[in-house]
Design a protein around this nucleic acid. Sequence first.
DNA 1: TATTGTTATACTCTATAACTATA
DNA 2: TATAGTTATAGAGTATAACAATA
Lengths: 162, 162
Amino acid sequence: MADALEPEQLETYFALMESVSMLHHAVEQQVREAGQLSYVQFQLLARLATAPTRQLTMTELADGVVYSRSGLTHQAGLLEKAGLIAREPSPDDQRATLVAITEAGLTRVSAILPGHIDVVQGQLFSPLSKQDQVALGELMTKVRDHMREQPPRSVSTRKRGS
Amino acid sequence: MADALEPEQLETYFALMESVSMLHHAVEQQVREAGQLSYVQFQLLARLATAPTRQLTMTELADGVVYSRSGLTHQAGLLEKAGLIAREPSPDDQRATLVAITEAGLTRVSAILPGHIDVVQGQLFSPLSKQDQVALGELMTKVRDHMREQPPRSVSTRKRGS
DNA sequence: TATTGTTATACTCTATAACTATA
DNA sequence: TATAGTTATAGAGTATAACAATA
């Protein structure tokens, strides 16, 4: 409502989307070549690998990565079949499923990470000064936090109208 | 090679990817609801609408939006079937196809744009100060320009190894 | 020989709706 | 009644390779 975008903002928006699209394409390729995984699968594994207890519920795991429950179930099925994660019922809540990364999963992430970091360094950070990099971090943290507050209206699919 | 990512850079990278993923999801929905198009289709139309002569060759149109020739052919086929673009052989180069946006295409873009701008404003820019917005534009322009210089190794698929 | 674009095909991803089971 | 997760299925997107035509 109200507030149009300045032409300058439109250019910023386009530059952001194009940059990230290209970056996404580059890292997707790297992840596939180095680890035979899609980027989504890599994100899920990376999230598990960095989780405090190295296990999350399906819902926690989905958050911010996947936008439908069935999508996550599908990806988790593939990862489990590949032996990279393990699922077991949660003791706390019988409805929930706990997902844990396996040793093989950790190994896979380790195989991907160095090359991944090279790509991100080369594509995203190399044209930026140290100052720029810090600034970008601050900006995107603000944006991400703001977006997280917005009703994602997807994973927590609580249909109203339809 | 060399140069690892600082943990701070890793966070920046993640914040960027998550933000844009959510933004992409939001605009994708908006474009579909307001204009019955995918985001890629909207990008193609928008690119044509803002092109100086309102027509581009397939290769020019693909640039930065689509990463395979056949993908563009497919999308162009859909857009043409919907009457939003028109294709004709180029007079300059008999191999090339000129793609032009139709009146219906322009109308469709117009139908999408206001709501689109609202979403971008609300999701991306609203948490940022005017200063922040300018800074983001400068940063992403640098990044985009740098990435454009990198061999995209995709559209201009000049296979070497395989 | 290199480039533009299309075709055919196959694969992956994603989303919707219906369903089960537990809170 | 609401939530966690799965299943089945259908649709859309994308990429590879083989191809035709022009430069």
